[in-house]
Protein backbone atom coordinates (compact mmCIF):
# COMPACT_ATOMS: atom_id res chain seq x y z
CA UNK A 1 0.00 0.00 0.00
CA UNK A 2 1.21 3.48 -0.75
CA UNK A 3 2.22 5.66 2.10
CA UNK A 4 0.14 8.62 1.00
CA UNK A 5 -2.46 9.33 -1.59
CA UNK A 6 -3.13 12.74 -3.00
CA UNK A 7 -6.85 13.32 -3.12
CA UNK A 8 -7.57 15.05 -6.35
CA UNK A 9 -11.12 16.29 -6.14
CA UNK A 10 -13.05 19.49 -6.41
CA UNK A 11 -14.31 19.23 -2.85
CA UNK A 12 -10.98 18.66 -1.15
CA UNK A 13 -8.23 20.40 -3.07
CA UNK A 14 -4.66 19.94 -1.86
CA UNK A 15 -5.46 17.19 0.60
CA UNK A 16 -3.55 14.00 1.05
CA UNK A 17 -4.83 10.98 2.86
CA UNK A 18 -2.84 8.44 4.75
CA UNK A 19 -3.16 6.12 7.68
CA UNK A 20 -2.22 7.60 11.03
CA UNK A 21 0.18 4.74 11.58
CA UNK A 22 2.07 5.53 8.41
CA UNK A 23 2.11 9.24 9.05
CA UNK A 24 3.53 8.83 12.54
CA UNK A 25 6.13 6.34 11.37
CA UNK A 26 7.12 8.64 8.55
CA UNK A 27 7.42 11.64 10.86
CA UNK A 28 9.40 9.79 13.47
CA UNK A 29 11.80 8.43 10.92
CA UNK A 30 12.96 11.94 10.06
CA UNK A 31 13.13 13.37 13.54
CA UNK A 32 15.64 11.19 15.28
CA UNK A 33 17.37 12.64 18.30
CA UNK A 34 20.45 10.56 19.02
CA UNK A 35 22.30 10.08 22.25
CA UNK A 36 25.91 9.42 21.18
CA UNK A 37 27.25 7.10 23.86
CA UNK A 38 30.79 7.46 22.55
CA UNK A 39 33.46 5.46 24.31
CA UNK A 40 36.22 4.49 21.91
CA UNK A 41 37.81 4.40 18.47
CA UNK A 42 34.46 4.27 16.69
CA UNK A 43 33.90 7.79 17.94
CA UNK A 44 36.33 8.98 15.30
CA UNK A 45 34.16 7.54 12.56
CA UNK A 46 31.06 8.81 14.28
CA UNK A 47 32.57 12.30 14.17
CA UNK A 48 33.42 11.87 10.50
CA UNK A 49 29.91 10.70 9.73
CA UNK A 50 28.28 13.49 11.65
CA UNK A 51 30.42 16.25 10.11
CA UNK A 52 30.04 17.96 6.81
CA UNK A 53 31.66 15.42 4.53
CA UNK A 54 29.23 12.59 5.15
CA UNK A 55 26.58 14.79 6.72
CA UNK A 56 24.26 12.78 8.91
CA UNK A 57 21.93 15.76 8.82
CA UNK A 58 20.63 14.74 5.42
CA UNK A 59 18.75 11.93 7.11
CA UNK A 60 17.14 14.02 9.80
CA UNK A 61 19.28 12.38 12.41
CA UNK A 62 22.03 14.82 13.20
CA UNK A 63 20.81 16.39 16.35
CA UNK A 64 22.69 14.92 19.28
CA UNK A 65 21.01 15.16 22.65
CA UNK A 66 23.18 14.54 25.63
CA UNK A 67 20.28 14.07 27.95
CA UNK A 68 18.81 10.60 27.79
CA UNK A 69 15.39 12.11 28.61
CA UNK A 70 15.36 13.94 25.29
CA UNK A 71 16.88 11.28 23.08
CA UNK A 72 15.17 8.44 21.29
CA UNK A 73 18.06 6.63 19.63
CA UNK A 74 20.91 5.41 21.79
CA UNK A 75 24.00 5.15 19.60
CA UNK A 76 26.46 2.96 21.44
CA UNK A 77 29.74 3.86 19.78
CA UNK A 78 32.73 1.85 20.93
CA UNK A 79 33.76 -0.89 23.29
CA UNK A 80 31.77 -1.34 26.48
CA UNK A 81 33.84 -2.60 29.37
CA UNK A 82 32.52 -4.27 32.48
CA UNK A 83 33.13 -1.03 34.33
CA UNK A 84 31.04 0.90 31.81
CA UNK A 85 28.19 -1.62 31.53
CA UNK A 86 26.10 -0.36 34.48
CA UNK A 87 26.33 3.18 33.13
CA UNK A 88 25.03 2.11 29.73
CA UNK A 89 22.18 0.21 31.29
CA UNK A 90 21.24 3.16 33.44
CA UNK A 91 21.21 5.57 30.52
CA UNK A 92 19.05 3.21 28.52
CA UNK A 93 16.59 2.98 31.37
CA UNK A 94 16.42 6.76 31.64
CA UNK A 95 15.34 7.17 28.05
CA UNK A 96 11.65 7.61 27.36
CA UNK A 97 9.79 5.30 24.99
CA UNK A 98 9.74 4.87 22.09
CA UNK A 99 13.47 4.28 22.00
CA UNK A 100 15.88 2.44 19.79
CA UNK A 101 19.44 1.26 20.20
CA UNK A 102 22.14 1.14 17.54
CA UNK A 103 25.23 -0.98 18.14
CA UNK A 104 27.96 0.93 16.34
CA UNK A 105 31.11 -1.06 15.65
CA UNK A 106 31.95 -4.68 16.15
CA UNK A 107 32.89 -4.26 19.82
CA UNK A 108 29.30 -3.35 20.63
CA UNK A 109 27.98 -6.15 18.43
CA UNK A 110 30.06 -9.01 19.77
CA UNK A 111 33.02 -7.68 21.70
CA UNK A 112 35.16 -7.79 18.56
CA UNK A 113 38.66 -9.06 19.02
CA UNK A 114 38.62 -8.05 22.66
CA UNK A 115 37.73 -11.50 23.91
CA UNK A 116 38.89 -10.95 27.45
CA UNK A 117 37.95 -10.42 31.07
CA UNK A 118 37.28 -6.70 30.75
CA UNK A 119 35.05 -6.42 27.70
CA UNK A 120 31.32 -7.03 27.42
CA UNK A 121 30.79 -9.51 24.59
CA UNK A 122 28.13 -7.52 22.79
CA UNK A 123 25.89 -4.88 24.31
CA UNK A 124 22.83 -7.03 23.72
CA UNK A 125 23.79 -8.65 27.01
CA UNK A 126 22.82 -5.33 28.62
CA UNK A 127 20.29 -3.56 26.41
CA UNK A 128 18.12 -4.67 23.47
CA UNK A 129 19.62 -3.69 20.13
CA UNK A 130 17.71 -2.68 16.99
CA UNK A 131 20.45 -2.26 14.42
CA UNK A 132 23.94 -3.72 14.42
CA UNK A 133 26.61 -1.92 12.39
CA UNK A 134 29.69 -4.13 12.27
CA UNK A 135 33.14 -2.93 11.29
CA UNK A 136 36.22 -2.00 13.24
CA UNK A 137 35.36 0.81 12.98
CA UNK A 138 32.61 0.83 10.34
CA UNK A 139 33.25 3.19 7.47
CA UNK A 140 30.92 6.19 7.32
CA UNK A 141 29.10 4.61 4.39
CA UNK A 142 28.29 1.60 6.55
CA UNK A 143 27.02 3.89 9.28
CA UNK A 144 24.70 5.64 6.84
CA UNK A 145 23.40 2.28 5.67
CA UNK A 146 22.77 1.29 9.27
CA UNK A 147 20.96 4.51 9.92
CA UNK A 148 18.73 4.01 6.90
CA UNK A 149 17.90 0.52 8.11
CA UNK A 150 16.91 1.97 11.44
CA UNK A 151 14.76 4.59 9.74
CA UNK A 152 13.04 1.88 7.76
CA UNK A 153 12.38 -0.02 10.95
CA UNK A 154 11.00 3.08 12.67
CA UNK A 155 8.72 3.81 9.73
CA UNK A 156 7.33 0.31 9.69
CA UNK A 157 6.72 0.29 13.41
CA UNK A 158 4.50 3.32 12.99
CA UNK A 159 2.27 4.42 15.81
CA UNK A 160 2.99 1.69 18.27
CA UNK A 161 6.64 2.61 18.42
CA UNK A 162 8.41 -0.62 19.07
Amino acid sequence: MRLMDVVDSELLPGVITTRIDDAVGWARKYSIFTYPFVTACCGMEFMSTACSHYDLDRFGAAFPRFSPRQADVLMVVGTISHKMAPVLRRIYEQMASPKWVVAFGVCTCTGGFYDNYATVQGIDKIVPVDVYIPGCPPRPEAVLKGLMLLQEKIRKQGWKGQ
Binding site: T39, A40, C41, G78, T79, S81, K83, M84, V87, F113, Y114, N116, Y117, A118, T119
Partner: peptide, 25 residues
Protein backbone atom coordinates in the same frame (compact mmCIF):
# COMPACT_ATOMS: atom_id res chain seq x y z
CA UNK B 1 39.42 2.72 33.53
CA UNK B 2 36.06 2.86 31.76
CA UNK B 3 37.70 1.77 28.52
CA UNK B 4 40.02 -0.85 29.96
CA UNK B 5 40.18 -3.43 27.18
CA UNK B 6 43.08 -5.46 28.52
CA UNK B 7 45.55 -4.51 25.80
CA UNK B 8 48.50 -5.75 27.81
CA UNK B 9 46.86 -9.08 28.63
CA UNK B 10 45.67 -9.49 25.08
CA UNK B 11 49.21 -8.89 23.81
CA UNK B 12 50.48 -11.74 25.98
CA UNK B 13 47.88 -14.00 24.40
CA UNK B 14 48.84 -13.41 20.77
CA UNK B 15 51.91 -13.59 18.52
CA UNK B 16 54.26 -10.67 18.15
CA UNK B 17 52.90 -9.50 14.81
CA UNK B 18 49.28 -9.95 15.89
CA UNK B 19 49.70 -7.29 18.56
CA UNK B 20 49.94 -4.58 15.89
CA UNK B 21 46.15 -4.34 15.32
CA UNK B 22 45.66 -3.85 19.06
CA UNK B 23 48.14 -0.98 19.03
CA UNK B 24 45.94 0.82 16.46
CA UNK B 25 43.31 1.12 19.10
Amino acid sequence: GYLHRAFEKQAEDDCWNNVIPYTDR
